[in-house]
């Protein structure tokens, strides 16, 4: 599993017409470490590794930013809408608290 952290899959509709508002879903493999407690129930103080920001850019412009906490699930998936005006790259970038940066790219083509 450790080797898999940061693997991303993005799903976009297979046929998009110019101007369509379409839904995109992305999943990233990530532990989203949750707070641990020791045998006495005390919180273990350490640098927890979790995604704290997700950025979506389309045609080079940021269209959505998600700030996230440890209340987001492990291997999280995110869904959002965007208006497909032109063909071009849609990128989703995940940043985690330990400096990890994981990016996925979907090449938007218009029918």
């Amino acid at each position: 599993m450790a080797d898999d952290v940061g693997r991303i899959r993005i799903r976009v509709p297979s046929s998009i017409k110019a101007g369509d508002v379409v839904r995109v879903r992305a999943l990233v493999i990530h532990p989203m470490e949750r707070i641990e407690r020791d045998a006495q129930g005390k919180i273990v103080q350490k640098a927890y590794r979790y995604i704290n920001q997700v950025t979506v850019t389309y045609l080079g412009r940021t269209i959505l930013t998600l700030d996230t906490t440890q209340s987001v699930s492990e291997n999280p998936s995110f869904t959002f809408a965007f208006r497909a005006t032109d063909p071009g790259p849609l990128t989703i970038t995940f940043l985690d608290t330990t400096g990890g940066k994981y990016a996925g790219l979907a090449d938007i083509k218009l029918a």
Binding site: T68, S77, F82
Partner: peptide, 18 residues
């Protein structure tokens, strides 16, 4: 859990997550 900062370019105010 999350703060989503949206833009008009999205065309629809929709966010889903696990």
């Amino acid at each position: 859990v999350t703060r989503a900062t949206l833009t008009p370019e999205m065309g629809q105010a929709f966010v889903g997550e696990t």
